[in-house]
Design a protein around this nucleic acid. Structure first.
Lengths: 286, 286
DNA sequence: TCGGATTACGTGCACCGTAATGATC
DNA sequence: GATCATTACGGTGCACGTAATCCGA
């Protein structure tokens, strides 16, 4: 069998055209390369070069050999990257979530339970979450409803109730509860990374204007400093994140109250069993 | 990059299941293999094995790696054989010939003119010769007529006239000349390796019986010892191969007199120029 | 006790770099 | 003289084998 370094040397020579150029590319001395080429010919027992004292050129054999060399080297490189990718995928848990709130409790839980694995998470929409789960891009997802799929294992893991946060002077601030359609055509401060809530706002308030903020700190400061309505939830309020100069009004739309479901493939159920048990005891939103 | 020997070792282990079995297969010590596997893991920076003190097993990573190893090794093996085949094809001249006689002069000519190349020859029928030439299976053919193809270069290279060799007592032995159809329904001694002459006999004498001999010596001895008619030619007669106890009668059929053409691809004309020149001076049948 | 895996240690080969030579422009 | 390829020579890394150890059936 031919050593891989011989193929690398041949490939370099085929690319560069001269031994000296190739040797520079390979960080190698010219004599070393010269010997490699000789050895390659010897191993294959085939003439690969025409030697004109001062010039080395590939024969037809040589170009054929170089083509093979490229293919083999590419395949080996592919092997390395693919195996590393495969390994990394096996030692990372990818979590997809429909909203940011469940992640806040789920991520610490996972890192605690699987200290040897790295955990990644991203927000995504319902259908993408389910697709990603079945395709293996996610091992665990949090959906805003029960997927009811025979291949999936799902467990309720908490609730979240949307509120509208209004300044006391706002005309709607004294209502005990509202519907989203009551708020249509208003302007809102909206943090961008809120998952499926964003869809809900767009759908229910097609005429509203959303002043979208990508930076969480900027968003909070604007809420503080402006009289613009914004959204919050019972979870956030319980966490004490409601502002004293704001009145939080319940939203009665059925979609404004969500039950989160933690979902994995049935085949992964055993692996995630400890997580499901912990959630059974104390859910992700309490 | 991973050294090829590491892949070979991995492949062997994947096939054998234990280091000791694989080491035996590789004619290698167990420790050497053990180290190879460790090095492979180190190079890939990935766990390939589960180690149970006394048992070494491939992980999923490992089986994936082994699959790649097989592919790479196969590709490399393929490279070696393909290049050697390609080289051999380039340093052999394959000659196809419609009859044995022209070969007797052509082969020495070729070996003399191209001492570095190996020459192979075979008898074949006209169409196969032309197909073989265009497909590269032959570089040079001898056809029984001018192929008249614009991509081919052809030159007459000799003639051969068929004779029927009869014992003096044979009823037809005193004719100055005969046609093949005159001989139909007789029994003949026929040497098998005579190229297109065989076709001719079958066509012109559908009722004749041919006692076919595969061994040249046996054939000649039977000609000597029996009273059965057989075939010969002017070339053979000039060579002094006619038997004293036989009368050779000319065959008048136009097909019984053939002009041979030496043919090559126009693209190879330059390469074979010396051969064509020599033949121009003294042809293959004189 | 045997078979399988790993560790420890010494050795030889093979690949490398430096230096020198040959050859062509 | 500059560039390119090859040969000669000495050094070193590394893959190997032998021997020893550990562990489980």
């Amino acid at each position: 069998m031919l050593d891989i370094y011989l193929l690398e040397h041949l490939a370099a020579f085929a690319e560069c055209g001269t031994l000296s150029a190739a040797s520079e590319k390979l960080h190698l001395s010219q004599p070393a390369l010269s010997r490699s080429m000789q050895k390659l010919e010897e191993c294959l027992a085939v003439k690969l070069f025409t030697r004109q004292k001062n010039k080395l050129t590939l024969t037809e054999n040589g170009t054929l050999a170089a083509q093979y060399a490229f293919r083999i080297l590419a395949l080996e490189q592919d092997m390395i990257t693919k195996i590393r990718d495969f390994d990394r995928k096996n030692r990372t848990i990818s979590v997809g979530c429909c909203a940011p709130v469940p992640l806040e409790a789920l991520m610490p839980l996972l890192t605690y339970q699987h200290p040897e694995m790295s955990i990644t998470s991203e927000l995504n929409y319902k259908q993408q979450l389910l697709d990603g789960l079945s395709q293996g891009n996610y091992q665990l997802i949090v959906a805003p409803e029960d997927p009811k799929d025979k291949d999936l294992y799902a467990l309720p893991c908490g609730n979240e109730q949307l509120y509208i946060s209004l300044p006391p002077a706002h005309p709607l601030a004294n209502y005990p509860a509202l519907y989203l359609k009551d708020l249509d055509s208003q302007s809102f401060l909206l943090y961008s990374k809120i998952g499926f809530w964003y869809e809900l706002c767009i759908q229910k308030m097609p005429h509203a204007k959303f002043l979208i903020q990508n930076d969480r700190d900027v968003f909070l400061e604007l809420v503080e400093a402006s009289a613009l309505p914004s959204f919050t939830s019972d979870v956030k309020i319980k966490q004490g994140q409601s502002r004293p100069n704001r009145i939080n009004v319940l939203l009665r739309d059925p979609e404004a109250s969500v039950t989160y479901y933690l979902v994995c493939k049935k085949s992964d159920k055993h692996f995630f069993q400890p997580i499901f048990e912990k959630i059974h005891d104390s859910n992700l939103t309490s």
